[in-house]
Nucleic acid binder design. Structure first.
Lengths: 241, 241
DNA sequence: GGACACAACATTGTATACAGTTTCGTACGG
DNA sequence: CCGTACGAAACTGTATACAATGTTGTGTCC
């Protein structure tokens, strides 16, 4: 019989669904901080921008809602999510639990092309920083972590990490404290070296300290929500000085 | 006639979207093993069952796809997911990483009502076993783990664990080996005692060994896909001896 | 002048219609 | 008899229309 009955998957992903395109575009806009937390995402508005019907937009928004990048309120619409301080803490605690372990595994599995991929990624980060595109640099910085999880070969945990990094983007948008932008470039570079050298213990420690550094760069003591709705702004607990 | 309509149960969903109801029903059916992995989930068929249009069904299927309970193939439809052996391994590895830690935290945070809740849950499990309803017992067994994650107060990680448990249900459907059903009752009972007593270290160790026990009860060496479609059954690589 | 009630508007929730793709049966040719 | 080509049926992908809900502006009453 033919060796290809059904096992060979042509995988028609070449033509991806329209909702994927819209979801990706919105996701990128959020990651690059072009869409601020709290922004209302009207269905007609988005559909007009991308030239699709509300059916597609709704599917995309639903997906982003499941990724917790947007919050959908019944009969009211979708808004870019605004993680609470508590959520922010938990997200970074989870990252500090998962990612060092992932870096350790990545170091033991990384091939030459993996190292090249990481280096190429780092170069793009530097380029974005040099160009002054802070949003893009931030997005690439997140992707770097996702890439390491991919190299580690732990698909399931890599999926979790991807979710956490997406949420981290929102958290950074809300709670970032330091003015000195993207101090992470050299941290990433050191990680690349450790992983390429197969030095798992160092990679793990570097990742851990890198995440702690990020975590402590957040200001989780006061609400810094750039609330979009006037009502929310006026109802915030600080506006009664 | 109006008051009659309002008194009917199904319309009692004051603020629950219709797609939530459908997604929940399908999810429950999968968890209770009434829907086997590989089963085709036609949109019209489901819509007819629940009395809703394809719009709702599609939203529900999309959500389940994101939870990885179903797989959606473009232009072909949705099928109950069939986790590979590799995925199965990774899911249980992730559980063994996350859940012992969660049990530890649950022990330190559990209140009296939490203990009561766990005990009530355990009672329901026993009732299901006594009634011979294996599917429901399995579902409740999974819920037990989710409940512990909830008690631990780690919302983010609890979400991950809920996902992992959902997938575990599929994995058990595909790769379960032992005939001695639900050996877990006493394991759960011991866990409840440790958590109620605030003995975190014991709870952690019990959880770890419980998960290892589950993991080793799987047979991940050979493909055991119970293909639903006749065509798939006849085209499977084993049916040509 | 302020608060409440109601109506017009805007937006989301759901159903249906149509278009594109896959699947399956059937007829034809080897 | 087997393989292939073609066409109809079934199903999914997308757009649009209608219904339900929330929001906003206006007018009236106190």
């Amino acid at each position: 019989m033919m060796p290809e009955d059904r096992s060979t998957r042509p995988l028609n992903l070449e033509r991806l669904a329209a909702s994927d395109r819209v979801a990706g575009a919105l996701s990128l806009a959020i990651h690059e901080h072009r869409l601020a937390p709290g922004t209302k995402l009207g269905e007609d508005e988005i559909g007009e921008v991308y030239g699709v019907s509300r059916t597609i937009v709704r599917a995309a928004l639903q997906r982003l809602a499941h990724n917790q990048l947007v919050e959908i309120q019944r009969n009211r619409g979708a808004f870019v999510a605004q993680p609470s301080q508590q959520e922010a803490r938990e997200v970074f605690e989870a990252r500090e639990l998962l990612e060092p372990r992932t870096a350790l595994m990545a170091a033991s599995r990384a091939t030459g092309s993996d190292s090249d991929s990481l280096r190429a990624h780092s170069a793009k980060e530097h380029a974005a920083i040099a160009a002054g595109d802070r949003g893009r640099a931030l997005h690439l910085s997140g992707q770097f972590h996702t890439e390491i999880a991919r190299i580690a070969g732990q698909t399931v945990i890599a999926g979790f990490i991807a979710t956490l990094i997406a949420r981290s983007s929102l958290i950074i948008a809300l709670y970032w404290r330091r003015e000195s932008a993207l101090c992470e470039s050299h941290a990433h570079h050191a990680l690349i070296e450790a992983i390429s050298a197969g030095d798992g213990a160092t990679a793990r420690d570097l990742m851990r300290s890198h995440l702690v550094d990020l975590h402590t760069a957040l200001d989780l003591r006061q609400t810094a929500t750039p609330a979009r709705t006037l009502k929310e702004a006026l109802l915030s607990p600080e506006s009664q000085a």
